[in-house]
């Protein structure tokens, strides 16, 4: 009995913890040793892992597909770009996360009343609305693009981003194991039944939505330092949200492995096609998405499980 419990604790807590740390060390150490080109690849990979894991805390667990996570990313980047001269970076990165979380908390209450596909198109519409409203604000302020001088170098940013990716992975894993996570899964399976059984449906959904925006806000703040200039259309681009969803579908969002697999798959694909035209990459991306939805709706991690059985 005791050994059984130990083994279970080992499998659910210790092993994921060790695997995540090992993965993070590999990504950071490998990136450092392999030179500037691979540092950028490692940074990109860590960025997507952090974004998809966070997205999956809300959308993977509750089944409410959000197409609006670019807003969280963009708000973090916007805060960094506008305040970089006045505040230290270590204040602005957490502040970016807090801003994104707060924004998600505010919009969550009206938005989460809407279910199913309408929720998906609503989050998308909302993200575009925020984008164009901010664009108008920036035009009114006379700041069409902003430059950041004296940002930290790639190796520093890589360390931060890997830390964010590891944090997001562990958060996703442990939320999935918790009572809170079980409640979210119950919402995905049958919201009305979950409510009847005493799951505080609204509170859980709102909390998960806000929680899933925090790390993307921090990621956006770090990426603003990486690109050293800020433009609303680029940072709030719907492509970011779409890529998150595509990677999550391809990887599978049933557990914390899926997002890592999805990010590896797409970053690998884009590296392979580096010389080719960007259109070709996007065409393959679209075809992969169609193929996975049709033939493997649980993604790569679902395929792995099926083979094991």
């Amino acid at each position: 009995m005791a050994t059984d419990r130990n083994r279970q604790a080992m499998r659910r807590i210790l092993l994921p913890l060790l695997l995540t740390l090992a993965g993070a060390a590999l990504l950071y150490g490998g990136g450092l040793r392999a030179g500037p080109y691979w540092q950028v690849v490692a940074l990109t990979l860590a960025m997507w892992i952090a974004l998809i894991q966070s997205w999956s805390i809300f959308s993977g667990l509750t089944g409410y597909v959000s197409l609006g996570h670019a807003v969280a990313y963009g708000l973090g980047a916007y805060l960094m770009a506008t305040q970089f001269r006045d505040y230290p970076v270590w204040v602005l990165i957490p502040a970016g996360g807090a801003l994104a979380g707060l924004f998600a908390l505010i919009v969550a209450i009206p938005v989460l009343r809407i279910r199913g596909p309408y929720f998906v198109i609503l989050t998308f519409g909302l993200a575009e609305l925020v984008k164009f409203a901010l664009l108008r604000l920036e035009t009114a302020l006379g700041a069409s693009s902003r430059l950041l001088f004296g940002a930290p170098g790639t190796t520093t940013l890589l360390a931060w981003m890997v830390a964010l990716a590891a944090a997001a992975t562990l958060l996703r894993h442990f939320v999935g194991l918790s009572r809170f996570g079980r409640g979210l899964i119950a919402i995905r399976e049958d919201e009305t039944a979950a409510e009847t059984l005493g799951v505080p449906v609204t509170r859980f959904k709102v909390l998960a939505f806000a929680l899933s925006a925090v790390i993307p806000g921090m990621v956006g703040a770090v990426m603003a330092l990486r690109s050293t200039y800020f433009e609303v259309l680029q940072v709030f681009s719907p492509t970011i949200s779409f890529t998150i969803v595509t990677m999550a579908i391809i990887g599978g969002s049933g557990d914390a492995r899926g997002p890592v697999l999805g990010a590896l798959f797409l970053v690998g694909l884009s590296e392979l096609l580096r010389g080719a035209s960007p259109q070709l990459y996007l065409i393959l991306l679209g075809l992969c998405l169609i193929a996975f939805v049709l033939f493997a709706p649980n993604g790569l991690s679902g395929l792995l499980d099926r083979r094991r059985k």
């Binding site: 597909v65 198109i121 969803v245 259109q279 065409i283 991306l285 679209g286 998405l289 169609i290 049709l294």
Partner: peptide, 16 residues
């Protein structure tokens, strides 16, 4: 929900 994702894939393919 699935048709939304499928048509998104179709849209990306057609545009590109």
């Amino acid at each position: 929900a699935r048709s939304l994702l499928l048509f998104f894939g179709v849209s990306v393919v057609i545009q590109n």
